[in-house]
Amino acid sequence: MKVYLQKIQKIIPAQWLENLQYLHSHFIWRWLLSDGSQPKDFSHKSAMVFSPHQDDETFGCGGMIAHKTAQGIKVVVVFLTNGDAAGGCNLDLKNQIIATRRQEAVTALQILGVQTSDIHFLSKPDGYLQNLNEPEKQQTIAQVAELLKLYQPEEVYVPHRKDCHRDHEATFTLVKSAIQSAKIHPDLLQYPIWLFWRSPLFLMLKLSDLAAAYRFSITAVQEKKQQAIAAYSSQLQSLPQGFVKQFLTSYEIFFKTQF
């Protein structure tokens, strides 16, 4: 898929490509909301959200988080990476970015109703999750498993396993291994971030994947989610406007996972 995107980027000007990606993403969202998904009822189950970067949790699950916390339901959020990739080789800039994104995450999650004590940062290097050596991988799985055993969530939310981003796909794999290690049996739901934006959907997903798609109405908390997204001001500057716009709607999409 990376090679496919590189070829497309060489042929199509950047603005045209962004417009094409927006139209593709918008079409997929509309199709899923009208015919391609089932309605998801509100669940009173406790939840743990795993986010590869600071902002994925709000983009993908912000409405669900706000709904649950408004009902007094426990929601824990775990960030796997520190978000430092944008700093290049400048150590001071990296540290500044890490601090900024951590504070933005805390602010966004406070807007969504998550207690600060229920926010955890594992601080792995940004962009590196798929390249963890075996000891690092096992250490990360053990860290996640420990949190799972501590909180015993009834639902776990992770990025889609085919989300077209190395850290996102690695997060799915690491968390799934940790769930098995922790010997717990939560409902596992995948949330798409880059899936509809970066790839032709029907090249990535099988019919069995699409059959597991659910739409969840967040109309009652839509404004709160938009405020939480706005808290990530340092990142919104570098993201395509069309990409951000797809998360400002009144629905979220989740894919239920069978173990």
Rank of each mutant, 00 (worst) to 15 (best):
Ala86Ser: 12
Ala178Glu: 14
Thr69Tyr: 00
Pro52Glu: 06
His44Ala: 11
Val3Met: 03
Leu239Ile: 09
Thr219Tyr: 13
Glu136Ser: 09
Phe50Thr: 03
Tyr232Phe: 15
Val175Cys: 08
Leu207Phe: 15
Phe196Arg: 02
Gly87Asn: 08
Tyr214Ala: 05
Ile73Pro: 00
Glu18Val: 10
Gln139Lys: 03
Ala142Glu: 07
Ile184Leu: 15
Thr58Phe: 00
Glu136Phe: 11
Glu252His: 04
Asp41Gly: 09
Gln246Ala: 13
Ala86Thr: 08
Asn90Met: 03
Tyr151Cys: 02
Ala70Met: 00
Asp92Met: 06
Ser37Val: 05
Ser217Gly: 04
Leu195Cys: 07
Thr219Ile: 08
Gln38Phe: 08
Leu248Glu: 13
Ala108Met: 09
Asp118Trp: 08
Thr69Cys: 01
Ala182Trp: 11
Tyr151Thr: 03
Cys61Ser: 10
Thr69Met: 01
Phe59Cys: 04
Ala70Val: 00
Gln6Ala: 08
Phe216Ala: 01
Leu150Phe: 14
Lys124Trp: 12
Gln143Thr: 13
Leu109Gln: 05
Ser34Val: 13
Asn90Gly: 03
Gly242Pro: 04
Ser233Leu: 04
Ala105Asp: 04
Val76Trp: 01
Phe255Lys: 06
Trp29Leu: 03
Leu91Thr: 13
Val3Ile: 11
Thr257Phe: 15
Ser51Leu: 02
Phe79Thr: 00
Lys245Asn: 12
Phe172Glu: 06
Gln115Cys: 13
Met1Val: 13
Val158Ala: 09
Pro200Asn: 11
Val156Ile: 13
Glu155His: 02
Ala70Phe: 00
Thr249Arg: 07
Gly88Pro: 09
Leu236Met: 10
Val158Trp: 01
Leu129Arg: 05
Ala230Ile: 02
Pro192Met: 05
Lys40Phe: 12
Phe42His: 07
Ala47Trp: 00
Gln241Val: 13
Leu132Val: 04
Met64Glu: 12
Phe243Ala: 11
Leu80Trp: 01
Pro159Tyr: 14
Leu32Gln: 03
Ser208Asp: 11
Trp194Asp: 11
Gln138Lys: 08
His44Asp: 14
Val49Gln: 10
Tyr191Pro: 06
Arg161Ile: 10
Gln130Pro: 01
Gln54Cys: 10
Trp16Ala: 13
Tyr191Gly: 10
Val156Gln: 05
Leu20Cys: 05
Lys10Asp: 15
Thr219Gly: 04
Leu33Ala: 11
Glu169Thr: 11
Thr58Ile: 03
Val221Trp: 00
Ser233Gln: 14
Gln235Trp: 03
Val76Thr: 11
Arg30Met: 13
Glu146Cys: 06
Glu104Cys: 07
Leu236Phe: 09
Val156Lys: 00
Ser199His: 09
Leu201Glu: 06
Asp55Leu: 02
Lys137Trp: 15
Gln21Glu: 07
Pro240Gln: 03
Gly242Ala: 01
Gly36Val: 04
Cys164Asp: 09
Leu207Val: 09
Lys45Trp: 11
His53Gly: 10
Ala220Trp: 00
